Computed example of a mutant assay.
Amino acid sequence: MSGNWIEVCATDDIDEEDVIRFDHGGKTFAVYRSPDNQFFATDGLCTHERIHLADGLVMDDIIECPKHNGRFSYKTGEAKGAPVCVDLKTYPVKVEGGAVFIAV
């Protein structure tokens, strides 16, 4: 895992099966907590119309865009449902001392 580790939030700041928005260095990220208590990070804007994914709905390992209901796997970034066809970039995540970090 390369990159600079940036602290995003406390683990308790994200509910299970939910997402938060995190802005850093002029970029927007989405940070997720899965139903099995793992954390993931992707680009924060939908690849279809650049809408904030943190306003979307998380179900299992899927984030659904709030504008046109395109779906992505937040674990892999893979586009899973029309109208999205371009995958999201994903980022390494680690948890230390009750805090969530992403490598950017």
Rank of each mutant, 00 (worst) to 15 (best):
M1V: 15
S2M: 13
G3Q: 02
G3E: 10
G3W: 14
N4F: 10
N4G: 12
N4S: 15
W5M: 09
W5V: 11
I6N: 11
E7N: 13
V8C: 07
V8F: 06
C9G: 07
C9E: 09
C9A: 13
A10G: 13
T11L: 06
T11A: 13
T11F: 03
D12E: 15
D12R: 14
D12N: 15
D13A: 15
D13L: 02
D13N: 12
D13C: 03
D13M: 08
I14N: 01
I14F: 02
D15Y: 03
D15K: 12
D15L: 01
E17G: 12
D18W: 01
R21L: 09
R21Q: 08
R21W: 06
R21E: 06
R21I: 04
F22M: 03
F22W: 08
F22C: 01
D23N: 08
H24E: 04
H24P: 07
G25Q: 01
G26E: 04
G26I: 04
G26M: 05
K27V: 09
T28Q: 02
A30M: 07
A30C: 01
V31C: 07
V31Q: 04
V31L: 06
Y32F: 15
Y32M: 07
R33M: 06
S34M: 04
S34N: 04
P35Y: 09
D36Y: 05
D36H: 01
N37D: 15
Q38K: 07
Q38N: 12
F39P: 10
F39H: 09
F39Q: 03
F39L: 03
F40W: 11
F40L: 00
A41F: 02
T42L: 05
T42F: 02
L45V: 01
C46P: 03
T47Q: 01
H48F: 09
E49Y: 00
H52L: 13
H52E: 15
L53E: 02
D55H: 10
D55Y: 04
D55Q: 11
L57G: 00
L57C: 11
L57E: 13
V58M: 06
M59W: 15
M59F: 14
D60G: 07
D61K: 13
I63H: 05
C65G: 08
C65Y: 06
C65R: 10
K67S: 11
K67M: 15
K67E: 14
H68A: 11
H68G: 07
H68S: 03
N69D: 13
G70Q: 02
F72A: 00
Y74Q: 10
Y74H: 02
K75M: 12
G77I: 10
G77A: 13
A79V: 03
A79L: 04
K80T: 12
K80A: 09
G81L: 13
G81Q: 12
G81C: 14
G81S: 14
A82R: 11
A82H: 14
P83V: 04
V84H: 03
V86M: 12
D87C: 11
D87V: 00
L88M: 03
L88W: 04
L88N: 10
K89T: 13
K89S: 14
K89I: 11
T90E: 11
T90K: 09
Y91R: 08
K94Q: 04
K94H: 01
K94A: 01
E96H: 05
A99F: 12
A99G: 13
V100L: 00
F101P: 07
F101C: 03
I102K: 09
A103F: 10
